[in-house]
């Protein structure tokens, strides 16, 4: 059935190509270098978060708290940097990831220790963290003139740049390298380590995994911890890339990310999903919602598009799983 796995990914790839052709036909500007570079750049933040959500979903759980964790890790780290006049890159990113990790482990201990339902747990912790951030730390944006210059410099790094006919600067953000490296890492962990295969097994049949001696606690702490850490990292990266830290950022982002992961073939019931599929799903979602302007559709319709994608993708995966089940018995 490896072929089927391959097929559900190639299905997304085909949908991606079709969408590209359609959008390009409506507006040839789509294939312009500047648009393509900006698309690639838009994949980075959603994509990194999606890697964590994918892992949680394979384990049979769900996480809607990560946008709150991302914004909290980003804003707290930056406020600390400003207060302490701390100029660093690695350090702040490590701190933001650690904060995300800590939040994620809170999710994990509630899910594992108290046997609570992941959706409710993460709804709760997400609201809590977001609310506490605004209430205790502040609501004011950190603008470009206050942002640590080191981070801005880092976030603006480019792989290469060209000048178009009018002489405008078009660069490909180097941040996609970070995204690709993290994706490769998660792919490796999920596919080639015992812990990763344990995540699949746990999502497939929790009781069976327990009977075989899988360490359930380690699996639960790993998936929610990873989702939190990736969110924290992505949060700070986001601020570095847009030169702005807004404590009200990322509202509603969980829907986009979950939509992208489901679009990439992951099952909400656990046991299924892959990094390449998720990356394709992220690309398709980001591309469609970013191209509405190119297609002369008002951006106010963006949420409608995302909602439609969630429903269509979920219907497609549940159709696939039903077909598979019938093929069995």
């Amino acid at each position: 059935m490896k072929a089927l796995f391959g097929r559900s990914e190639s299905l997304v790839a085909i949908a991606l190509l079709v969408a590209m052709v359609v959008i390009g036909a409506i507006n040839p500007a789509f294939f312009g270098l500047s648009n393509l570079f900006s698309l690639a750049r838009s994949n980075v933040i959603v994509g990194i978060m999606a890697l964590g959500v994918l892992t949680v979903m394979i384990s049979g759980g769900i996480d809607v708290s990560f946008p709150a964790f991302a914004v909290a890790a980003m804003y707290l780290t930056l406020r600390l940097m400003l207060a302490a006049d701390w100029q660093g890159i690695l350090g702040p990113f490590a701190l933001a990831s650690a904060m995300g990790l800590a939040f994620g482990l809170v999710n994990a201990s509630l899910v594992h220790g108290l046997r609570m339902i992941p959706l409710i747990v993460t709804l709760g912790t997400g609201a809590l963290v977001r609310g506490a951030l605004l209430g205790l730390v502040g609501t004011s944006q950190i603008n470009i003139d206050h942002m640590p210059p080191g981070l801005i410099h880092f976030g603006s790094a480019e792989l290469f740049a060209v000048r178009d006919a009018s002489g405008a600067h078009i660069g490909l953000s180097a941040m996609i390298l970070i995204y690709l490296a993290l994706a490769a890492l998660v792919h490796l962990v999920l596919g080639k380590t015992l812990l990763g295969r344990g995540v699949y097994a746990y999502g497939d049949d929790r009781e069976a995994a327990r009977r075989l001696g899988f360490d359930q606690r380690r699996i639960v702490f790993f998936v929610y911890g990873l989702a939190g850490a990736l969110a924290g990292f992505a949060g700070l990266l986001h601020a570095s890339m847009i030169w702005l830290a807004n404590p009200r950022d990322f509202v509603g982002l969980e829907l986009d990310v979950i939509a992208a992961v489901v679009l990439g073939g992951a099952s909400i019931f656990g046991g299924r999903g892959s990094v390449p599929g998720t990356m394709l799903g992220v690309f398709l979602l980001v591309m469609i919602s970013n191209s509405l302007i190119l297609m002369h559709i008002p951006t106010t319709w963006q949420r409608v598009v995302v909602g439609l994608i969630v429903i269509v993708a979920t219907a497609a995966t549940s159709f696939r799983d039903r077909r598979r089940a019938q093929g069995g018995a």
Binding site: T193, R197, G198
Partner: peptide, 29 residues
């Protein structure tokens, strides 16, 4: 107690690898 989404080979191999991951030098791969 099998894992329906995993292959037959993985279903067969996983448990012994878990048991092995304890004693003779833990390996994660």
């Amino acid at each position: 107690s099998l894992f329906p989404s995993l292959s037959v080979a993985e279903n067969l191999a996983l448990p012994s690898r878990i048991a092995g991951a304890r004693g003779r030098g833990r390996r994660f791969g």
